[in-house]
Design a protein around this nucleic acid. Structure first.
Lengths: 138, 138
DNA sequence: AAAAAAAACATGTAAATGCATCTAAATAGA
DNA sequence: TCTATTTAGATGCATTTACATGTTTTTTTT
């Protein structure tokens, strides 16, 4: 059984790799005039949900702060990337659905994002950043 | 050689695991009245640098935005967690050094942080989140 | 050595974040 | 069924972020 030091080392590798990729991808997205990755994540989740999603679901899935997410959704709706319908059977709730514009934007963002994922993971492999992770027992 | 789909799967696992751990740890830190993890990271880097560090170095290492970091350092200095000396030999620059108060705070934060790293990595192992990572060639 | 370019850090400002709180609707309890 | 509690989502407000730009000092170019 792996002790804590192993887990700590795995965490550091994990965190550094994700931060590097995330940071580069965001820079590239902003430079290209696109929104940031947390907008991307919302578009992606909505695209995979044909019947739409409740804000609460999405917020828990993506681990977003409720109030920040509420405003993010409002901005994304303003930009025409998603729609907010009343939820049938729950007058408090909303159903979020991606729009065609949202789908198109996600694709454009993905073209940039994927390059950085690919390069970043390849780099991590090359520099042995995953060694600590592979050392963990299953 | 692993294709892109493998790398993409590895990224998703990586990102989800890190987000889960990060988010839980931050919640716990805030609940305990402590600063967030990007403060922790600065304290940790400074603690490992006996001669101190230039803001520029730190900012590049941690991939922070320059202007945000400049203000973060100011706040941390106000709180007495670090000091800003003039850099010898470069009148533009500063040297950041951790204080005893900063060291003490880092330890307290670590007590909380480590629990979430440990639990989160263990959980990721158990649920097979690292399978995609282990599948990558070296 | 003077002028031009770059580097390190700070700051003005607008937008985003997050805690606390609010409203309205749904569910649980008495 | 009437009341108390919980849940979904929005919003007020203070803090933080990040882009653009400013200031000072260092380095490079001519």
């Amino acid at each position: 059984m792996s002790g804590f030091d192993e887990r700590e080392a795995a965490w550091i590798a994990l965190n550094q790799t994700r931060t590097r990729i995330f940071s580069r991808a965001e820079r590239a997205l902003v430079a290209a005039g696109f929104p940031r990755l947390h907008w991307y994540d919302v578009l992606w989740e909505l695209e995979r949900a044909p019947d739409g999603l409740r804000p609460k679901q999405l917020e828990q899935q993506l681990l977003f702060d409720q109030s920040s997410f509420s405003r993010q959704v409002a901005r994304m709706a303003e930009d025409g990337l998603l729609t907010r319908h009343a939820a049938t059977g729950d007058a408090r709730g909303k159903i979020l659905r991606i729009t065609d514009k949202g789908r198109a934007l996600r694709l454009q963002m993905w073209d940039i994002y994927r390059v950085h994922i690919d390069e970043g993971i390849a780099e991590a492999q090359k520099t042995g950043a995953f060694a600590a992770l592979k050392r963990l027992d299953d």
